[in-house]
């Protein structure tokens, strides 16, 4: 599978996750978010940025509580919880947010 954006071709897996993670850009994220019916706000970007930073260092998305705590620190304690993350990304922070962030899909019993 693949999609076209601004004249470039992006290969994805069956579920629409980018295969070549280096191809990711803010424009690609906007495109993927639109596909998911997610409207990107500042808060959404905080999640994406944290995911990408963590992935850069650890080659995997962070454990859910690491993510919620980080978001709580940035956006206020009342937002540092799973519920808030699901408000931002109804498809789940691990799967939907990872996709928009250009990370591979988490596998296993998750």
């Amino acid at each position: 599978m693949s999609f076209e954006l601004n004249g470039a071709t992006y290969e994805t897996d069956e579920d629409g996750y980018l295969l070549n993670l280096d191809q990711w850009s803010k424009e690609v994220a906007d495109y993927l978010a639109a596909e998911e019916d997610v409207e990107m706000t500042e808060a959404h970007w905080e999640v994406i940025n944290f995911l990408r930073e963590y992935y850069e260092e650890y080659k995997i998305a962070p454990m859910i509580r690491i993510l919620t705590k980080a978001i709580g620190k940035k956006l206020g304690k009342e937002k540092g919880n799973t519920k808030y993350l699901y408000e931002l990304y109804p498809g789940g922070p691990a799967k939907q947010a990872c996709k928009i962030a250009g990370l591979p899909k988490p596998t296993g019993c998750v």
């Binding site: 260092e57 650890y58 080659k59 995997i60 690491i66 988490p106 596998t107 296993g108 998750v110």
Partner: peptide
């Protein structure tokens, strides 16, 4: 070593 593909540094961090 695991289904997630989580390597040792990530596991240690977690």
């Amino acid at each position: 070593g695991n289904n997630l593909g989580m390597e040792k540094p990530a596991l240690a961090n977690t």
